[in-house]
């Protein structure tokens, strides 16, 4: 039985994440585990993966090239975050130089590969040379017009450069083609939220709920958006607030334990609805607002009662202020 990724990571953490002390087998397992779980741990991949490639590349077998790619991307992620702290006129960060080396190895091995070409583009991105990156992706798309990875990179690039409108139109075009890509829908929702286009964001969230109705996070986010629309000064109404309350309740139904956000949402939605909801909406189920409020309140108090600390008092104060 293979040990789970978490166990492996804790083992590694005990030994200070020092690759030389972890040994080849554990390092390999961690790197491949992270790759398969698509976990974002560039710090670990950068150290352990680079160690594997530098000292044990012949023992990696069929995983070798995937590991190269993984370490490359991790280095880019790392180099980028380090690059922002440095002065702009500084030389190329060490990580990016290392990535460049790995990239050279990869492109020597697969000279025609579009996948490697995309990695080249990502290096340009990490260096901050967006035009070059864009050109690289355009070349990929010229060769293979339906390359999903390159399309997504271009969208991300547009967003990074602040061309929100272009990113949105590209995303829409992409989603028309690949309408079950949850990542892309989430991205679009985030862009719309940034632009305060809540109705459009709500549409994206509805789409996500349709894709996976069992994910309580989508319901929660949808409720948040509805709450925001409902509590806005202009165009807000009890209808949206009521929808928000329902979706908070549903999220709580899907994940009954430790779902603090849903409880808070319920509480706030119920408080915002206030006495105006005494008359039930047309057609929909008439649930007493006060009842929901009381329920959320007891839930909240209970959640904090389990964890003693200064928070319980603050929550108490907030609750009493809401009641007034």
């Amino acid at each position: 039985m293979e040990a789970s990724l978490d166990e492996l990571l804790s083992q590694a953490h005990k030994r200070g994440n020092e690759p030389a002390r972890l040994g080849f087998e554990l390092c390999r397992k961690i790197v491949s585990g992270l790759r398969e779980a698509r976990a974002s741990r560039p710090d670990l991949v950068r150290r352990i993966g680079a160690y594997l490639l530098d000292h044990h590349s012949s023992r990696l077998g069929h995983e070798l090239w995937a590991t190269y790619e993984q370490v490359y991307v991790a280095l880019l992620l790392y180099g980028k975050s380090a690059g922002q702290q440095q002065r702009p006129d500084a030389k190329m960060p060490e990580d990016l130089a290392a990535a460049q080396e790995y990239g050279n190895i990869l492109s020597a091995q697969f000279p025609e590969s579009l996948r490697v070409k995309r990695l080249d583009g990502m290096l340009w991105e990490a260096k901050g040379m967006y035009d070059m990156a864009m050109k690289e992706y355009d070349e990929i798309l010229a060769e293979d017009p339906h390359n999903i990875l390159a399309t997504k990179r271009q969208i991300a690039l547009c967003r990074a450069r602040g061309k929100t409108a272009e990113a949105v139109s590209r995303l829409n075009k992409y989603l028309e083609m690949v309408c079950s890509d949850t990542e892309a829908w989430l991205q679009l929702a985030a862009i719309y939220l940034n632009a305060q286009q809540f109705k459009r964001a709500a549409f994206c969230m509805e789409e996500l709920i349709l894709i996976n109705p069992m994910n309580y996070l989508y319901h929660l986010r949808y409720a948040d958006i509805m709450f925001t629309i409902g509590s806005a000064d202009k165009g807000g109404g009890t209808e949206q607030l009521r929808i928000a309350r329902k979706y908070y309740a549903h999220a709580l139904d899907l994940k009954p334990h430790n779902n603090l956000r849903a409880v808070y949402g319920l509480l706030l939605a119920a408080a915002a609805l206030g006495p105006s909801s005494a008359k039930g909406a047309k057609g929909s189920t008439k649930t007493d607002n006060a009842e929901v409020f009381t329920y959320a309140r007891t839930q909240l108090i209970q959640l904090y009662a389990d964890r003693p600390g200064p928070m319980a008092k603050m929550v108490d104060g907030m609750l009493s202020s809401l009641l007034e």
Partner: peptide, 28 residues
């Protein structure tokens, strides 16, 4: 063989419609 783009598009649209039908009870 490169997949046919119109075919993919049609399949995706179909899937989306089916999804809407199946999970309609979760949206207003």
């Amino acid at each position: 063989t490169a997949p046919n783009p119109t075919q993919i598009l049609q399949n995706n649209q179909l899937m989306r419609a089916r999804r809407l039908r199946a999970n309609a009870c979760y949206i207003p």
